[in-house]
């Protein structure tokens, strides 16, 4: 397919991406420093700088389809080290959000982990690790994954079995409600 046709096809997606990320991807000059420092780079289908290149060329659909954006742990090493001041981690995050909305989730298990995480934080106001492990293992179907660490962690008091809530749960709830309202507004915009 012709590049210019493909860019026209992606025009709306590109506008949305630029608006939601707020990152000027044209500044990227493809030096590769983001890929070089990425701790999960070895496991990505395309390196970080290629994700940036796709975003830069306005090929958002291709970028959203990559699994790389899901493996990104948002450690922000890329952003910290970028010589042009491009917020690469923000680009990855925006692409993840958009990919989920558009139904392109290349790494389903990562997405499920995110969902469990959000549910726990949404109800307790903070992380409850045993809940996360159980929730993740059941939702992904990998029931026994990482269970061997349970007993040693509990013995070392690294894992608290009794959950406890955040003191000011109302504030957390209003925060999440605000974020959800922004999300709805975003969808309304489309």
């Amino acid at each position: 397919m012709l590049l210019n046709e493909k860019q026209i096809q992606n025009e709306e997606l590109n506008k949305e991406f630029l608006r939601r990320s707020g990152v000027d991807v044209s500044k990227c000059y493809q030096c590769g420093k983001c890929s070089a420092g990425c701790p999960v780079g070895d496991h990505m289908d395309i390196p970080t700088n290629k994700v940036m290149r796709l975003a830069q060329m306005g090929l958002i659909e291709d970028a959203m389809k990559s699994s790389a954006i899901w493996l990104c742990a948002t450690c922000s090493t890329c952003t910290t080290r970028c010589p042009k001041g491009v917020d690469v981690a923000r680009v990855m995050e925006t692409l993840r959000i958009m990919a989920k909305e558009h139904g392109y989730v290349a790494e389903k298990n990562v997405d499920k982990f995110h969902s469990v995480w959000m549910t726990i934080v949404g109800t307790m106001g903070r992380m409850y690790e045993p809940g996360l492990i159980v929730g993740r293992n059941f939702s992904t179907g990998k029931i026994l994954q990482d269970t061997q660490y349970g007993v040693p962690y509990i013995a070392k008091q690294k894992l608290k079995l009794v959950p406890y809530k955040c003191k000011n749960m109302d504030e957390i709830k209003s925060l999440i409600a605000k974020a959800e309202a922004m999300d709805r507004e975003e969808r309304g915009n489309k």
């Binding site: 397919m1 012709l2 590049l3 210019n4 046709e5 493809q30 700088n49 290629k50 290149r53 796709l54 060329m57």
Partner: peptide
């Protein structure tokens, strides 16, 4: 070719 992407490109 866009060697940064490793893809062939065609432009009209």
């Amino acid at each position: 070719e866009d060697t940064l992407l490793g893809q062939q490109v065609e432009i009209a």
